[in-house]
Amino acid sequence: MLTRMTTDVDLATAVNLQSPSATPRASLDCPAWNVLPADVRAVLSRLRDTQGFDFLMDVTAVDWSAEKSPRFTVVWHLYSSTRHTYVRLAADCASNTEPAMPSATGLWPGANWHEREIFDMFGIKFDDHPDLRRILMWDAYPYFPLRKGFPLAGLPAELSDPDITAETGTGLISAPMAGGPFVATPGGPMSEAEPRAKDEAWNEQRAKPV
C-alpha cells in the first residue's frame, strides 16, 4: 500500500510539474487528472519519458450533450509496462461548436487511428495530425454519429458513390428499432444495459419523429 501511495505522489508531482493547473479527476480505478488542452502534449510526454507510461492504451472522447459547456472531453489512457498500472488524462475542448485538441501522434504513432476515429465519430479536430480523415465512415458522410444529438435510428444521406446512387436509386435510411422493448422494465435487472431503446418504429399508430 505504501508503495502505491508513493507512486501516486510521484505521478502527481510529475503531472503538476508539467501542468500546474492540472486537477485530480474523480476516478474509481486508476489515478486521473484533468489538464488543459495546451498542456496535454507536455504531460503525456513527461509521463512517457520519466514515469514509464510507455503505452498509449486508448484515446477516446465524451459528448456531454449540446446543453453542457464544455461539451466535449477527450480522454487518454496510458499503461506502464514496468509498473503494470494505468493512468488517465482528460481535457475539455475549448470550443463547443468547433472542438479541437492537440494530437498525440508525435509521441505515439498509434494515436493516429484513435484520433481519426474520434474525428469521425465526434467531429473533434486534432491539431498537427498528419492525416486527419474519417476512418469508419466515408469522407463525404455529413454527420458525426456518436454526438448526443444524432438519433439511434440514423439519418438519411447519400451513398458514397453517385453512380451507384443513380443506378439503384437508394441511399441511407433511418432504421429505427422496431418491435422492442429491448430492455427489461426500468429499475429491473439489466435496465442499465445497452441498448436502452424502446420500440422507436414509426407506423400507422405513431407518427415519424421530426
Binding site: Y143, I173, A175
Partner: peptide, 17 residues
C-alpha cells in the same frame, strides 16, 4: 434484411442495391 444491425451504418438488406 440488415439483421440485428438497425443502425446508421448498415444497409437494411442487400436487395436494396
Amino acid at each position: 434484411s440488415g439483421g440485428m444491425y438497425r443502425s446508421y451504418a448498415t444497409l437494411q438488406g442487400v436487395d436494396r442495391i
